[in-house]
């Protein structure tokens, strides 16, 4: 187990190294500097700023410094907001994104799995059709339209829920639903087809032949096997929630890391862009590791935890 974890951690570090390197040089290659804006700075002033932020050092030195600092989570100061470090921006905004993300993942998983199971158990009946209509809608409607529709119905028409900012639980509901819709629909379809497969499998027949009731057969024997594809989808799910949050946070005016990232891109705030990119990568790599560990728990055939040491 420990050996496996160490190996995986090493992987993560190597991947991070590449990610940092690539973002660093991509940023270098991008046209326009951080101080290029509508209001032209005088050449003298721009020179001064470049000097102050170390942009005049030789490239390898900038790269090397950045690399070393990045591994200590020091991404330098923001180019745009004087006096703020990138890491401050991240720690300030990330909690919002974390709450939103976890809430969406929970919604997508619980409702998606539920819909999928209902559809499979009621195969070709009303429940199946209803669940699949919801799923198709969820997949085909983009999240920003979903967000607008939700805002219109629940906030403007019904006045039931707030739309902007992020202060109470009520504020989180609409953005979390909007963010969850597409993955929810995807999970529902995944769960349905995998549950249908499982319910037709031989071991379900074996379970029935023991005299177990329909419920026990479906949930005790079916569910754990049927949920495996959904567990594999957790990695992509995190990605989809992450990228979705860029849009949803902006639409709902949530001061999270997603909207911070969008703002930093429009501002060409290089250090913030790189910092958030690296941070997102760490997040993703760690969640993939967690998903793999989880998969090993659900499926005994996968020997992640090295029981027996094979």
């Amino acid at each position: 187990m420990a050996k496996y974890l160490l190996k995986r951690l090493a992987y993560i570090i190597v991947s991070l190294f590449f990610i940092i390197t690539i973002t660093f040089f991509l940023m270098q290659a991008a046209p326009g500097g951080p101080f290029a804006s509508e209001k032209k700075l005088t050449p003298a002033l721009e020179e001064q700023m470049n000097e102050a932020y170390g942009l005049n050092d030789p490239l390898y030195e900038q790269y090397f410094n950045y690399l070393v600092n990045a591994f200590t989570f020091d991404f330098g100061p923001s180019f745009k907001y004087v006096g703020q470090d990138v890491i401050e921006i991240i720690t300030r905004s990330f909690p919002y994104s974390l709450i939103l993300g976890i809430e969406s993942i929970l919604i997508a998983l619980s409702i998606g799995v539920l819909l999928g199971v209902i559809a499979a158990v009621k195969h070709n009946k009303f429940g199946d059709y209803t669940a699949m209509v919801i799923a198709v809608l969820g997949i085909s409607v983009p999240s920003f339209i979903m967000a607008t529709v939700l805002q219109y119905i629940f906030a403007i028409k019904l006045g039931a829920l707030p739309v902007a900012r992020f202060e109470s639980f009520a504020h989180t509901i609409l953005p979390a639903i909007a963010l969850a819709t597409t993955p929810l629909a995807f999970i529902a379809r995944l769960m349905r087809s995998s549950m249908l497969d499982v319910l037709n499998s031989d071991y379900i027949k074996t379970a029935k032949s023991k005299g177990l009731g329909q419920r026990v057969v479906t949930y005790k024997h079916g569910l754990r096997n049927a949920i495996l594809p959904v567990v594999s989808y957790l990695g992509p799910l995190v990605v989809s929630i992450l990228t979705g949050s860029f849009i949803i946070e902006s639409i709902f005016g949530i001061p999270g890391l997603g909207s911070e990232f969008v703002v930093s891109v429009t501002n060409r705030d290089y250090t913030v862009i790189m910092g958030t990119t690296v941070f997102f990568s760490v997040l993703l790599l760690v969640s993939i590791l967690l998903v793999d560990l989880l998969y090993g728990l659900v499926d005994p055939r996968i020997k992640v935890a090295g029981k027996g040491g094979k």
Partner: peptide, 16 residues
């Protein structure tokens, strides 16, 4: 009781 043809698929893989 019944025994099925393929022992590879007739036991639940995620249950001891």
């Amino acid at each position: 009781s019944m025994i099925f043809q393929d022992p590879m698929t007739s036991l639940n893989p995620t249950m001891p």
